Amino acid sequence: MAVLADSANASKAARAAGVARSWAYECRDTDPSFAQEWDEALEIAADKLEEQAWARANFEGVQYKFDKAGNPLLHPVTGEPYFERVGSDAVLMALLKAHRPEKFKDRQEVTGKDGAPLLPPTDTSKLSREELLSLLSIRRKMQPGEGATE
């Protein structure tokens, strides 16, 4: 299970264990204890990926700089190899969407008051006064707690 926890790759884990991938899946499907270990290994692998994603999002990566000949560029003051911090804005946004979806999700759902559906605009200019009053009466009866009778 250690290889599965490191890679989240069932084929690689089966090869490391010296068994066929199909047999590993069969064991997972028939042995609840094995299935639980399998799921835990995949959770560990996902945690490792998330840890790496956080590091990339926080620009914790280092990229050394080289000249055209492949020699490391040296910092002019310290003489140490020159590097830049690197990260990923895409990973940063993915993490924000996962952990703060109410703020960073791609789409906003537009609804009426208290989540009610929006009604399309209607042109009532062609209705008579009596028809408008009738519609208003119906609307009042349909409002919860306002004139509704059972």
Rank of each mutant, 00 (worst) to 15 (best):
P120H: 03
E130A: 09
V3I: 14
C27Q: 06
T111S: 13
K103I: 13
I138M: 09
L49C: 15
F83I: 05
L42C: 15
A10K: 11
E40W: 08
Y64E: 03
R107S: 14
Y25M: 07
A13R: 07
E50F: 08
S88D: 08
M1I: 09
T124F: 13
F59H: 04
P72S: 13
L95V: 02
A20M: 11
T111C: 04
T78K: 01
R129W: 13
E26H: 14
Q52M: 13
W38I: 02
G70W: 02
K48G: 10
T149D: 08
L92C: 11
G61P: 00
R28F: 01
A57C: 03
A94R: 09
E102C: 06
K126M: 14
S137D: 14
A5C: 08
N58P: 00
R107E: 14
G87V: 01
L73A: 03
R139S: 09
N71P: 00
V91N: 01
W38V: 02
E50H: 11
L49N: 15
S11P: 06
A5V: 01
D6T: 00
T149E: 09
E84S: 12
Q108H: 07
Q52T: 12
M142T: 03
T122N: 02
A116H: 07
Q143W: 10
A5P: 00
T78E: 02
K68M: 02
P81T: 05
